[in-house]
Amino acid sequence: MNITEKDIDHLAELSNFSLSEAEKTSLRQDLQNIIGYISQLDELDVSGVEPTYQVFEMENIWREDKILPQEADREALLNLAPAMTDNQIKVPKVL
């Protein structure tokens, strides 16, 4: 399939990137090639085959509903935030 500029803009939006025109051009070429390669799956017949999402055969892994101390507390976590006020993470106004 052919990757258009519009496709790149859409994928950039889904990826939350703000890309330069130069980046868009090179990414468009790269994605074109990569998608061209992975599209070889078209020739493979998988009718009646179940998908595998995990190669982990176990089930029902869960924990008890008990409050436990955590490896990092509020201070340790919020100290990582680029901007913080009143023990909350600060971001530009959400419109």
């Binding site: 436990l68 955590q70 490896e71 990092a72 509020r74 976590l77 919020l78 023990n87 909350q88 993470i89």
Partner: peptide, 18 residues
């Protein structure tokens, strides 16, 4: 995560695990 699920009347971000 194993942190308190009842944040009523608690400080902001005081019931947050990594």
């Amino acid at each position: 995560s194993e942190v308190d699920n009842d944040a009523r009347g608690k400080e902001p971000n005081s019931c947050v695990s990594p």
